[in-house]
Nucleic acid binder design. Structure first.
Lengths: 215, 215
DNA sequence: TAGATTGTTAATCGATTAACAATC
DNA sequence: TAGATTGTTAATCGATTAACAATC
């Protein structure tokens, strides 16, 4: 059953899901890979190839049923299941993520917020009280948590990742600016914002070089 | 001079930069591609290949001078130049990014914050007053801005991108959950947080399948 | 000089695209 | 049935890795 699907394919799945959601909002019932390819600006071949990793969702001569495909991709992405999450690091970014309600719609349910800074203790964000990390081990014993969102500064993130793993966390959404050194079974998804911004900066430099006659 | 460097290489550059910065902090003066490959968990071949796209930074028999390579990569990434930025969308995420001081260290200087919500008018974030988007065209006429950070909700982001482009913005760091439809010369770097989280969710599902005997 | 390590070419691997037979 | 469009195999393209001659 397992053919080991490549990272490139997985990364495209949420984008398909987003576009299918939009098609549904626009009451589009069916779509061919050709039409979808025009909207998404990828090749029809890639769409068919990608989807077929997971099964034949389409029908020759007809195309794909939008609602059906949307549901199926949602299921593949695990959006049909509730994922309890905690945020570790209740700074600006942690609080911003806590306040972002859209995650909940997709089954990502925030169940706890933790920080190391006593000043934050007891403050409530979106109805959830900020706890101290000392309480984390006990909390994890009594509440199932699928995903830990790590929004602590770099210098505290490494040891916190260790603590999370020791206490049974299997998946970390890492916003700290370092690569976590976790056991291979732990799933880490990095969001390195500063690296994204540097990539943008690089392209800007290329653009300016080509448009201002420099070099 | 231009051999069109692939996106994969560009995306790795900031990571090299980060590791070299850490080596400098640890007073490491020189490093070989072999040693760096062990630390970064990539092949030495890839490191040499990547760096050689931009010139010969190393020396046979010696390796690479850490400080020199760090500076050079910084220059390639455009970190030796100040990039004035504005934030458009002063919600939780916009304010969190505004408060993140590390960008400034790398030359990314926040010069303005804008929103459409009058309630936010006049509130100051990190010394910068939130302005209304009506003032945006005038602001851009009088102040040079390299990068616009778009942290508005999806339904307002598309038209705001148009407005930004009309007023001369050439680069957008897009946090809105949609693909912007901008002219080809505009540089767009997307940070689709919900898609990153879905990817994590997918992997979690795979993990659970393989460990809980399901399917 | 001898040893180390780069820069660079060649080989491999994987991902994308094209093509088309199967079939709705 | 005829036309459309998928599922899937084959061809192409690009990126990664290996190898090694050049050279510090």
């Amino acid at each position: 059953m397992d053919k080991e699907i490549s990272k490139a394919v997985i990364n495209r799945l949420p984008r398909y899901y987003r576009y299918l959601g939009e098609l549904m909002e626009n009451k589009v019932e069916r779509i061919s890979s050709g039409d979808l390819s025009k909207i998404m600006r990828v090749t029809a071949s890639q769409i068919r190839q990608d989807l077929n990793h997971f099964g034949g969702f389409g029908q020759q001569g007809y195309g794909y049923n939008v609602a059906y495909l949307y549901t199926e991709i949602g299921r593949i992405l695990g959006l049909d299941v509730v994922h309890p999450m905690i945020i570790v690091g209740a700074g600006n970014l942690g609080q911003a993520l806590a306040n972002y309600g859209d995650f909940e719609k997709r089954g990502f349910k925030l169940v706890g917020i933790f920080d190391v800074n006593p000043v934050l203790a007891g403050i409530t964000v979106r109805g959830i009280e900020i706890r101290m990390v000392q309480d984390l081990p006990d909390f994890l014993k009594s509440s199932p948590v699928d995903i830990a969102i790590l929004t602590l500064p770099k210098n505290k993130a490494a040891q916190m990742a260790d603590l999370l793993v020791e206490n049974g966390i299997k998946a970390i959404w890492n916003f700290a600016h370092l690569d976590l050194d976790t056991p291979e079974y732990v799933i880490v998804e990095n969001v390195h914002l500063s690296e994204s911004l540097m990539t943008l900066s690089y392209k800007l430099g290329e653009y300016k070089k080509s448009h201002c006659g420099d070099e």
